[in-house]
Amino acid sequence: NQASVVANTLIPINTALTLVMMRSEVVTPVGIPAEDIPRLVSMTVNRAVPLGTTLMPDMVKGYA
């Protein structure tokens, strides 16, 4: 099973992502692959992402 990116904290809308905000976890449904974490750093989220939420491609500006 592939690990996905999961919010390690509440990420407010329009926040630039940092490494400490994200962790990898095997979850269903599958979200952004964990190997993309380095690429996500400094990208911003377009909605509030609660703790434990899987990051989906449409949640990160410029990812999809």
Score class of each variant (00 low, 15 high):
N1Y: 15
N1F: 10
N1R: 03
Q2P: 14
Q2Y: 09
Q2H: 11
A3N: 07
A3C: 10
S4G: 06
S4C: 03
S4K: 00
S4T: 04
V5W: 02
V6C: 05
V6Q: 04
V6G: 00
A7Q: 01
A7D: 01
A7V: 08
A7H: 01
N8M: 09
N8T: 09
N8C: 05
N8D: 12
T9D: 10
T9V: 11
T9S: 10
T9A: 12
L10W: 12
I11A: 01
I11L: 07
P12G: 07
P12Q: 08
P12F: 05
I13M: 08
I13E: 15
N14A: 10
T15Y: 08
T15K: 08
T15D: 03
T15S: 06
A16P: 12
A16S: 14
L17Q: 00
T18Q: 09
T18G: 05
L19N: 13
L19V: 14
L19I: 09
V20N: 10
V20W: 10
V20Q: 15
M21Q: 08
M21C: 04
M21T: 04
M22F: 05
R23E: 04
R23K: 14
R23Q: 05
R23V: 12
R23G: 07
S24Y: 14
S24T: 13
S24R: 05
S24M: 07
E25V: 04
E25H: 07
E25A: 13
E25C: 05
E25Y: 06
V26S: 13
V26R: 03
V26Y: 07
V26G: 06
V26H: 07
V26L: 14
V27Y: 02
V27N: 03
T28L: 06
P29Q: 05
P29H: 04
P29N: 06
G31D: 00
G31M: 02
G31H: 01
G31A: 04
I32T: 01
I32N: 01
A34Q: 11
A34C: 07
E35K: 06
E35Y: 10
E35W: 06
E35G: 10
E35D: 11
I37Y: 03
I37F: 03
P38W: 09
P38K: 10
P38S: 11
P38N: 11
R39G: 06
L40A: 00
L40G: 00
L40S: 00
S42Y: 08
S42M: 13
S42F: 12
S42T: 10
S42H: 12
S42I: 03
M43R: 06
M43G: 04
M43F: 11
T44F: 07
T44A: 08
T44I: 15
T44L: 13
V45F: 00
N46W: 05
V49G: 01
V49I: 15
P50R: 07
P50L: 11
P50E: 12
P50Y: 08
L51S: 13
L51V: 12
G52H: 14
G52R: 05
G52N: 14
G52T: 02
G52D: 14
T54C: 04
T54S: 04
T54W: 02
T54Y: 00
L55W: 01
L55I: 15
L55Q: 02
L55K: 00
L55V: 06
M56T: 15
M56A: 08
M56D: 05
M56Y: 10
M56H: 07
M56E: 14
P57C: 05
P57V: 06
P57R: 09
P57W: 05
P57Y: 07
M59R: 03
M59Q: 05
M59H: 11
V60Q: 01
V60M: 04
V60L: 06
K61I: 15
K61A: 14
K61Y: 13
K61V: 11
G62T: 04
G62W: 06
G62F: 06
G62C: 14
G62Y: 07
Y63V: 04
Y63A: 05
A64S: 12
A64L: 11
A64R: 14
